[in-house]
């Protein structure tokens, strides 16, 4: 500590952020505040390419906020977000987003196929109709999530799991390289959970990057290879086995130990990651 000795220090003003062109997402000092309360504070992390990353943390840790701030849906008080070293506006077409299931009105008069076609709208462009090719591509995405038979059903008549699959298919239809998903496993049945994780792994194999807000500590280890432990600040980030240590979990979840013990066991069983 030399701060006690009065000594002048200097630093360059022209601060170029270090570009990490190969990292699909790098977040620097991102701060989001609601009035005087911070929601995210000095969040800093990079996501390696082709990773399947979970954002984990207790309620109110700012997980959804982080995703929304990255996508520019809520304004950040400070900090920078870069995609492949470029600002959001230049990278938008390469990014897909799956919002929380509760965020839309499922009574809306559209069919599953209509919803998936929405993923193609940007590719279709203004003033043009969704062509047969685009519809076929959307259909292929539905098939990939096992929903081909229900493509013409009104979305409100699908089960929760099926709705989530439709959302996933819509993200697939965007043909993005980086996907943000907000709680894709919330309130879905076991079969859908398996189907979704299968698709996510396929995407990862294709070299795409997936970032999910995830709430189930027990499955983080088996589903994701990279994790960000968040509690307003980044508690830990890195490969799942190194991130989700007992110590880190205590740091972000506080004293809720029964849950943590379970998670600890799950991680212990997992062994070294690939």
């Amino acid at each position: 500590m030399n701060a006690t000795t009065p000594q002048l220090t200097t630093s360059a003003l022209t601060a170029h952020p270090e570009h990490s062109a190969e990292s699909p997402l790098s977040v620097h000092a991102l701060t989001v505040a609601y009035h005087r309360k911070p929601v995210l504070w000095d969040v800093d992390f990079d996501v390696p390419p082709a990773s399947l990353m979970a954002i984990v943390g207790p309620n109110g840790a700012g997980k959804s906020t982080l995703i929304k701030a990255c996508l520019g849906l809520i304004p950040a008080a400070a900090g920078e977000v870069e995609f492949w070293g470029e600002p959001l506006r230049r990278a938008r077409s390469r990014i897909g987003y799956v919002p929380q299931r509760e965020s839309v009105d499922w009574d809306f008069p559209v069919s599953a196929l209509d919803v998936v076609c929405m993923g193609r709208y940007r590719k279709v462009g203004w003033l043009r109709r969704v062509s047969k090719t685009h519809k076929a591509a959307a259909m292929a995405c539905l098939e990939r999530v096992g929903m081909k038979e229900l493509s013409h059903r009104q979305i409100g008549k699908l089960s929760g799991g099926q709705q989530q699959r439709v959302f996933l298919a819509r993200a697939l239809a965007q043909e993005a390289e980086l996907y943000f998903m907000d709680e894709p496993f919330a309130g879905v049945d076991a079969a859908t959970e398996r189907a979704i994780i299968g698709v996510l792994r396929d995407l990862q194999r294709e070299g795409k990057t997936i970032i999910c807000v995830h709430h189930d500590l027990q499955t983080v280890g088996s589903y994701f290879d990279y994790a960000l432990l968040l509690n307003m600040r980044v508690v830990a980030v890195g490969p799942t086995s190194q991130t989700l240590t007992q110590e880190n979990l205590v740091k972000s979840y506080g004293g809720r130990l029964t849950l943590l013990e379970q998670a600890g066991e799950a991680i212990a069983q997992m062994g070294p990651t690939r």
Binding site: L71, G72, L73, I95, P99, S103, V104, Y121
Partner: peptide, 11 residues
């Protein structure tokens, strides 16, 4: 239907 997704997709 989904203004958030639309905004995220740049519409």
């Amino acid at each position: 239907f989904d203004p958030q997704m639309a905004r995220a997709a740049g519409i």
